[in-house]
Design a binder for these strands. Structure first.
Length: 580
DNA sequence: GCCGTTTTCGGCCCGACTGTTTTCAGTCG
């Protein structure tokens, strides 16, 4: 049976190819397909078994979409899509990935020069064949040539892992804020929404003194390799390895509406503008105002603008138009977790781990300095040959912790281990030795390419082990570098409830594992999560803020996160698992 | 293509920048 995700993906492709058929990314048909794809994606129940009439009941899906979905479910194909793919083969679609080349230009190039691929276009540019075409010129030809060169590092749909984008944004923000006339600079866009990969880095600089000097400075920084836009209000540059950074300069009075606009998502913004329109208002980056009189209604803070639209403030991590607007209207936004809610860290390494950097004393000092009241020390167990600790080393560490406890009267220190899940779900040590630990995190560190059913059983077997309180970094993925193990996520979430085993939300920006998508699948269930840093040095303890934001993006309610609980309640949860 | 207490047609989110024009189309976010 075809899944909603598969249907949504096909409708998205239909939208992309219809852009070419209609010659416009804004055609109403394109937008209808995009909206339909989104509607299918966020619909809770499978659509494949429904009749066309039932499908039409879903908002965003009309008679035409219903017919297409039935065709897909019944035949596995979509004639309309097959014919579009024939008209616009992948090599031609590739041409539209070139920045600056949209559907109109691509179609015109095909019509006038027979361009069917990026290679064709490269040749035409070499022959200077573009500059004499209507609407184009020498400048456009040069820009397309440069864009093709840049294609080597990704086209319009290139995405950068959040860990890299975050670093660039932080550096840029610091540099901007050091500049005279800039009152503050704040990253926006998908970075603020905390997507795990980022297209462009968007930044707002707040200034009352005009933008000229700021834009001049921004576009001539030493890290800038290319300037793709230079204007009074907006400029865009390429930095370092090819990441685009967009800067908008706004006044403090516009900051609320501006940050909503630049945080997006686009789909979320469209929903808000429709709400504004219903009231006879207009919403843009400069504010919410009356369409007729032009009178400003709200702009200074996001809270002001949302409130004027009759909504509570919606956290940026939720702004994807995947149900957050409806929840806001209904007053049922989830009560999300903040860093200040965390009382403990349940995955912390010391220099006993081969890859750990700081002593246990340093780690405990840092934990106390962060205001935490409990912590689990979880160095690697012996099966991780390079980094793991032997039994004797673990016993010595436990004795050491007992001695140290007097120095930390307000901190509950659990002696734990990060256990390794073998291919069949077994873990390090033996039952008796495991019983000596206060806490167990079990993680996959090897054999990432077993079949999904084997991996699923592997993790569930580990969950059933009484020594395992939490599954660490669920899939082992590294964003943008390796995919992580394949799992039947729903089966794993069900087993988590069944066994009382917690699931870690790993705070490393490269991991963010379990992913926000997985977390969202658990909404409404009784799965217990813990937000852990997996810190290998004292500095990394601050990473909890990333885990928190990933949890927020996954709609995880605060009360489902065990390390927001007070010490006694938390310890009771730990004990109940170990007693099974 | 979708939708409807302005209902079955006529609307559909909004603005900046570029390059080509000489008032605007195309692209992008």
């Amino acid at each position: 049976m075809i899944t909603n995700a598969e249907i949504a993906s096909i409708l998205s492709e239909l939208a992309r190819l219809t852009v070419l058929e209609d010659g416009s990314p804004q055609s109403f048909r394109v937008r209808a397909y995009e909206k339909a794809a989104r509607a299918v994606e966020i619909h809770d129940e499978p659509l494949a078994p429904l009749t066309a009439a039932q499908i039409t009941k879903v908002p965003g899906l009309g008679a035409s979409s219903a017919k297409k979905i039935r065709e897909l479910a019944d035949t596995g194909r979509l004639a309309k899509l097959d014919s579009l793919r024939e008209t616009f083969p992948p090599a031609f679609v590739e041409v539209t990935r070139i920045p600056g080349v949209g559907p109109k230009t691509a179609l015109m190039l095909r019509e006038s020069l027979g361009i069917e691929s990026v290679d064709d276009l490269k040749r035409a540019v070499g022959d200077q064949a573009l500059r004499d075409l209507p609407g184009l010129g020498a400048k456009t030809e040069e820009n397309i040539a440069r864009s093709i060169e840049r294609l080597g590092i990704g086209g319009k749909d290139r995405r950068t892992p959040i860990v890299d984008a975050m670093r660039i944004a932080q550096d840029m923000v610091a540099a901007l804020e050091a500049m005279p006339g800039v009152d503050r600079a704040v990253p926006m866009g998908s970075l603020r929404r905390f997507r795990e990969t980022i297209g462009d880095v968007d930044i707002i600089a707040v200034s009352e003194g005009g933008s000229g000097a700021i834009m001049e400075w921004f576009t001539t920084m030493s890290t800038v390799t290319d300037v793709v836009g230079f204007g009074a209000k907006k400029s865009s540059v390429i930095v370092g390895a090819g990441i685009q950074v967009d800067l908008r300069v706004m006044t403090a009075a516009q900051f609320g509406s501006a940050s909503m606009y630049f945080t997006g998502s686009k789909a979320h913004n469209i929903r808000l503008r429709q709400l504004a329109m219903d009231r006879g208002w207009i919403l843009n980056e400069y504010g919410l105002s009356d369409s007729a009189s032009g009178d400003l209604i709200a702009s200074e803070t996001e809270e002001d603008v949302y409130a004027a639209l009759g909504l509570p403030w919606i956290p940026p991590e939720l702004r994807e138009d995947t149900g957050e607007v409806e929840a806001a209207i209904a007053g049922s936004l989830p009560d999300l977790v903040d860093v200040g809610h965390l009382h403990g860290d349940l995955h912390v390494h010391t220099d006993l781990s081969g890859d750990g950097r700081d002593s246990i004393e340093a780690m405990l000092d840092a934990v106390v300095a962060r205001g935490l009241t409990y912590v689990a020390i979880t160095d690697h167990a012996e099966d991780l040959v390079i980094n793991g600790a032997s039994r004797d080393e673990m016993l010595a560490q436990r004795a050491h912790i007992d001695e140290l406890c007097v120095r930390y009267p307000d901190l509950t220190v659990l002696h734990g281990a990060e256990l390794n899940i073998g291919p069949e779900g077994s873990i390090d040590y033996d039952r008796d030795f495991l019983a000596g630990f206060d806490f167990g995190v079990a993680s996959v560190h090897s054999q990432f390419d077993l079949p999904a059913d084997v991996q699923t059983q592997r993790v569930i077997t580990a969950m059933n082990n009484p020594a395992v309180n939490v599954i660490g970094h669920l899939t082992g993925r590294m964003i943008g570098r390796r995919p992580g193990i394949e799992l039947d996520v729903d089966a794993v979430l069900a087993a988590a409830v069944e066994t009382g085993c917690g699931i870690e939300i790993n705070s490393h920006l490269q991991r963010l594992d379990a992913s926000a998508d997985v977390l969202r699948r658990a909404v409404g269930s009784d799965v217990v999560f813990v937000i852990s840093t997996d810190a290998h040095d004292t500095r990394e303890l601050a990473n909890s803020m990333w885990g928190v934001r990933n949890a927020r993006r996954g709609w995880v309610r605060r009360d489902r996160v065990a390390n927001t609980w007070e010490t006694a309640e938390f310890l009771a949860w730990v004990a109940s698992k170990r007693g099974r």
